[in-house]
Amino acid sequence: MRKIEVSRIKDEVKRLWMEANFVLPDDVMDALGEAKKRESSEMGREVLGKIVENALIAKRKRVPICQDTGIPVVFVFAGQEVQITGGRLEEAIEQGIGEGTWEGSLRSSVVNDALARVNTGDNTPPVVHMEIVSGDGLKIIVMPKGAGSENMSGLAMLKPADGKNGVKAFVLKQVENAGANACPPMVVGVGIGGTAEKAMQLAKKACARPLTEKSREMAEFEGELLEEINCLGIGPAGLGGRTTALAVNIETAACHMASLPVAVNINCHACRRKEAIL
């Protein structure tokens, strides 16, 4: 067994949480630049220019890209040959988020209870997804998730006969409803299959996938959906244009013969994520 001390995990989560909020990933910067070249609307090009300028200011000044520094969503892929020592893994992740919130002057956007609504002051507790994988590595992805886009999520339990067209209609409806709320150009994560909760987790995972990585089976459908979304006319910031989405990422799973679950989870253009392998 390979031993990993929890203090290392805490320090790494803290660093990833701050960096993700200050520095937009290269693939997103590239996609924004490409979109600006293709955008036919003058207003759309201006907005895309401002989005890139904003990312550069954030990086230089170490100020958050967006004031909504997000609810922390943390994916942990733990190798089955890893032993975590010195404390509890979830506690270490939570401490890393809390310390990073203070050190990075991030906004505290998390409330303790959905109905009581008292701000916890340091963005804890995070939402943590754990997966056991083969090997002796530990991969952590920290994804600050803004509520503007998260609130536009949706789930449909379609009928098997609805097929691909049903999926397409639902995704387009969700994006159309999201409009400027989700801070377009968006990254549209789609989960197809599984059960209700599995489909939504797939959609979230799809949102976390780099824009340069295409699905092996669904690449064509992703392209088709992107094309139709970019004909909706919403455009950057909802102020018009062809760049409504930068990418559509689809993840799929097996499902019951009577089900066709489809989940949509949208990310804004501040598609923030940072990963590390310990």
């Binding site: 401002k50 904003n54 967006c66 950057p236 910031a237």
Partner: peptide, 12 residues
């Protein structure tokens, strides 16, 4: 309407 997601720029 302001442009969403450019808080570093708008904060200035």
């Amino acid at each position: 309407g302001a442009v969403g997601g450019i808080g570093a720029l708008l904060g200035e």
